[in-house]
Simulated assay, not measured.
Amino acid sequence: MLEEYRWLASLDVLRLECDGMTRVISALLQRDGIAHRPMAGRLNVEAAGQIEPHYWIELDDGRHIDLRARMWLGDKPGVPHGFVPADAAGVRYEGSAFEVQANPIVFWALTDTTIEAFGSPDFLKVRAQAG
């Protein structure tokens, strides 16, 4: 769990909105061979409102990675942040997958560093194998 927190924290400090964040996370997951789908669509949170357009990552186990819903909906209870269970109460993601090409130049432009500088999300591989 600590490894997940550290990995998310290293991303959360980036000055990116949801589209750039989704591209960066997808590039990291691609780098390490972790199955996922970058998604574009809308997010509806019963307690806070709706964001459209919105971008996030969908993992094969049904969870989402979303680090920017609070940017638009605030830090209210129920607004997702980090790894979001597929069945999170009052949270509905609707969208379509899109393709992200992992490109080192684009990654540098978005993060001001190299993809190698970021830690590996290998803990996601361990979870997928255990499940």
Score class of each variant (00 low, 15 high):
R37N: 14
E4M: 01
R6D: 06
V24M: 03
E4W: 00
Q30A: 14
E17C: 08
I51D: 01
G74V: 10
L59G: 06
H81W: 13
D75S: 13
V100I: 11
L67Y: 03
R42N: 06
I57A: 01
V24I: 07
L73C: 14
R63G: 08
A48G: 14
G62L: 03
E94Y: 08
R37W: 06
A47T: 15
H36Y: 01
L16Y: 04
V24C: 07
I65Q: 13
M39H: 10
R63Y: 13
D12Y: 05
G95R: 11
V24G: 06
Q50M: 13
P104C: 03
Q30P: 09
K76F: 11
G90N: 10
M21P: 02
R15C: 07
R70M: 14
V84G: 09
S96A: 12
H81L: 14
E3R: 03
Q50G: 08
W72A: 01
I65E: 15
L29P: 08
L28M: 13
A47P: 11
A27K: 04
G41E: 12
S26K: 05
A97E: 12
E3C: 01
G82Q: 00
L59V: 08
R6Y: 14
L73R: 15
G90V: 04
P80I: 02
A35F: 00
E52L: 13
H81P: 06
D60C: 05
V100P: 07
L16V: 06
R31N: 04
N103Q: 09
G20P: 02
G82K: 00
G90A: 09
H36Q: 04
R92M: 07
A40T: 12
R37C: 14
H81Y: 15
I34F: 05
D19S: 07
I105A: 12
G90R: 10
Y93K: 04
P77I: 02
E99Y: 03
E94K: 10
W72F: 13
P85S: 10
E99W: 05
P104E: 01
H54F: 10
G49T: 06
S96L: 11
G49Y: 12
R42C: 08
A9V: 02
T22K: 04
D75M: 14
L14Q: 01
I57S: 01
M39T: 09
V91Y: 02
H81T: 00
Y93C: 09
A27N: 04
E58S: 15
A88T: 06
D66A: 10
R37I: 09
E99N: 10
E52A: 13
I51K: 03
D66H: 11
R92C: 04
Q101W: 07
L11N: 02
R31E: 05
G90Q: 06
D60F: 02
R92N: 11
A40D: 12
R70T: 11
R63V: 11
Y5N: 05
G78L: 15
A27E: 05
R63N: 15
M71K: 10
E46G: 07
V24Y: 08
L16K: 09
Q50H: 06
R68A: 03
A88N: 04
L73W: 13
L14H: 00
A102R: 02
V45M: 05
R31G: 00
L73E: 13
L67H: 02
A40Y: 10
A27T: 11
G49I: 06
A40M: 12
R70L: 11
Y55F: 14
G78E: 12
G95Y: 09
P38Y: 12
V79F: 13
T22I: 02
H54G: 01
L14I: 04
G49V: 04
S26T: 05
D12L: 00
M21R: 02
A40L: 09
